[in-house]
Computed example of a mutant assay.
Amino acid sequence: MTAISVRGIALGIESFGDDDAPLVLLVGGTTMLSWPDALCERLAAGGRRAVRYDLRDSGESTTTDPEAPAYTLRDLAADAAALADALGGRPAHLAGIGVGGMVAQVAALDHPGAFSALTLVGTRAVAPGPPDDDLPGHDGATMSRLFARPMPDWADREAVAEFAAAGAEILGDDPVAARAVAARVWDRTPGTAVPVRMANQLGMVFSRLDCGPRWRERLPAIEVPTLVVHGRRDRFFPVGNGEAIAREIPGARLLVLEEAATAIPGAAIGRITEAMLALG
């Protein structure tokens, strides 16, 4: 892992594969560890350079104040284009997961020359907050269970890992995998302040981020090959959100993972990687 300076900030990256291979840029959601090691390794084995990176205020990237971010969603999109340029990989295949998928959509729209393909995993086409009337919102019962839990002692690595595991079980994800990832995220968090811990573990910075203006109505302007991946059992962003994106981006392919929820399960990595490689 290392960091690259773009647009006056540092972005933490990790690269897999030959530096001269076609670039697949993986937007963290919010940290790079949202993208499983095995998926990055398979992309590299398929002849790509897979680079996953941390968004601002997470991991090895510049952390300032997650409670009052001085940047917008469109700034994060511009970061993606600048990073692709700095890595010498334009036009790159851009992939985003969760809130990283929102970054990827806006990046493809605002910087079309920077990207040759787009993969969107477990995301939606509107900003955090209430969805459009025709889109399914978060599952109410699941959210009630998630937010009824007391926060952990953020200074206690094991407590944070257990909190993540319990949340994954509520969401329908693998608690063992979630525990391991949370521990790795904890180890990489650049500060001990609670807002910094929460930004890394929960992506809470996005609840304070300016995500305007709307971009859903612009999706038909995306002209690059696009793959939309969504878990049938996703209770956070239900599958109707992925279906809407696939309808609105011309020619997009929708890959619904019947047994998946919010995270990428190990059993689906092969299918996802094969579909990503097929985009070019």
Rank of each mutant, 00 (worst) to 15 (best):
A95K: 00
T2Q: 12
R208F: 13
G29K: 08
L76T: 02
R149N: 12
Q105Y: 05
D134Q: 14
G17L: 00
P130T: 11
A114H: 07
M151I: 07
L39I: 10
L109F: 10
A44Y: 11
Y71L: 04
I249G: 00
R216H: 11
E67V: 03
R149M: 13
L209F: 05
V99C: 14
A183R: 13
V27P: 05
E248W: 09
P150K: 07
P213G: 09
L219K: 04
D54Y: 06
T64P: 00
R214P: 09
E274N: 12
A77Q: 00
L39S: 10
T30R: 01
C40R: 06
G88F: 08
L83I: 07
I4T: 12
A50T: 12
A275G: 08
A267Q: 14
A155I: 02
A38M: 14
M1T: 09
G47L: 08
P190Q: 02
R232M: 14
T30K: 01
D133M: 12
S58Y: 01
T62E: 10
M151F: 11
W186D: 11
D57I: 00
S15D: 09
A92K: 06
A3R: 14
D18T: 03
V160I: 06
L23G: 08
L118Q: 07
L109Y: 02
E223S: 15
A199M: 04
I264L: 11
G17F: 00
L279M: 08
D234F: 11
L25N: 11
R42A: 09
L279H: 05
I9W: 01
R7F: 07
A177H: 03
D153N: 13
P69K: 05
G113P: 02
R247F: 03
P150W: 11
I9D: 11
P112H: 09
R48G: 10
H138G: 15
V27Y: 12
D134N: 13
G12N: 01
L39E: 08
F236Q: 13
L39M: 15
R42F: 05
A161W: 05
G89S: 07
A84D: 06
L120Y: 07
A199W: 04
P265K: 04
A3S: 15
A50C: 11
P130G: 07
I245E: 10
A117S: 15
R52S: 02
L94Q: 06
V103E: 06
G98I: 08
L171Q: 10
W186A: 02
D19G: 06
H93A: 04
P131Q: 00
L227W: 06
R197M: 02
R218E: 14
T123Q: 05
P69L: 02
A199R: 01
G98V: 13
P195D: 04
E158Q: 12
L202I: 04
R218V: 10
V51K: 03
I9M: 13
P22L: 09
A78V: 07
A260W: 11
A165V: 02
A86N: 12
P150G: 09
V106C: 15
L73Q: 02
R124E: 04
R247D: 12
G251P: 10
L255T: 01
I13D: 00
P128D: 00
M151K: 14
D20N: 10
G46W: 09
V121R: 02
S34R: 04
D153P: 11
W186L: 11
I249Y: 01
T63N: 03
D234L: 12
A278E: 15
T31L: 00
A107P: 03
